[in-house]
Write a protein that binds this DNA or RNA. Sequence first.
DNA 1: GTTGAAAAGTGCTGCGA
DNA 2: TCGCAGCACTTTTCAAC
Lengths: 157, 157
Amino acid sequence: MLKKESQNLEIDNLDIDILKQLMQDATKPYTEIAKDLIVSGGTIHVRMKKLQEMGIIKGSHLIIDPQKAGYDVTAFLGIYLEKGIQYKDAVEQLSKIKEVVELHYTTGAYSMFAKIICRDTSHLRHVLNEEIQAVPGIQRTETLISLEESIRRQIEL
Amino acid sequence: MLKKESQNLEIDNLDIDILKQLMQDATKPYTEIAKDLIVSGGTIHVRMKKLQEMGIIKGSHLIIDPQKAGYDVTAFLGIYLEKGIQYKDAVEQLSKIKEVVELHYTTGAYSMFAKIICRDTSHLRHVLNEEIQAVPGIQRTETLISLEESIRRQIEL
DNA sequence: GTTGAAAAGTGCTGCGA
DNA sequence: TCGCAGCACTTTTCAAC
């Protein structure tokens, strides 16, 4: 009896259907989902619990409009690291900068790639010149400013 | 009496505090938020209604772990458009490709910049070679593959 | 594993300050 | 404009299938 963790780690179509619905609107009541999928509310609850324990569901976020909240500038940053600099150290430093909302370790031209959201262009300038440049090991950056976010959605299961 | 829309379109600290809490966990009960902020549940409700009407709150999403859901490859795509091609037409075509989860119209080296999530490398290859290349007006693309997503969060208000 | 209903807790609405 | 209280609804649990 060594298989301790094998407590139904599979996802079936019902799980997928539940996720599909909740990915669009996380506040949708279980009872409504149950009606749509023709199962009982209790089943939805059991499945959700399983998915959460499996770690597939990491939580739920309120989606706000950054522009209406006063954050008007989205930019992408290609980052070149100096040779011999630990990627991990740079991540730690960059994670302290609140405006950095995404950071990837990438193949290709850049060492790292970041997404930044700022209030306006002067705020962006400050973040780039004062905050980012102050991170040890960052050699050079290339900035792409987003003039329009045309698509923004989640993966389709 | 021309000011028809001026029905309190301002955001105070209470609104910000409510958003801060719900942005981390959209399922947090109003009553708990009310306790934390030392106001009544009804007040939270009124503020939320205001924020929704103002369009600051766009909805709520379930956050899933793409890797555990079988989507292991995240890539960024710098896109060069041919001269004279309408940006809008390209957006329309790209929005039909499910794997494209983000698309920006950008300044800098590229005309457009996309984020793509795929199951594996062969899935990515298919999307790049068959789907993306088939879009009229796309001259050339540069791919950055994310080996690790080190930071992923929302803006801090 | 699923169901259906009972119990507990939450969201919503109107009245009062 | 805000806070309180009652009603409707949802979530959660549990015995039975």
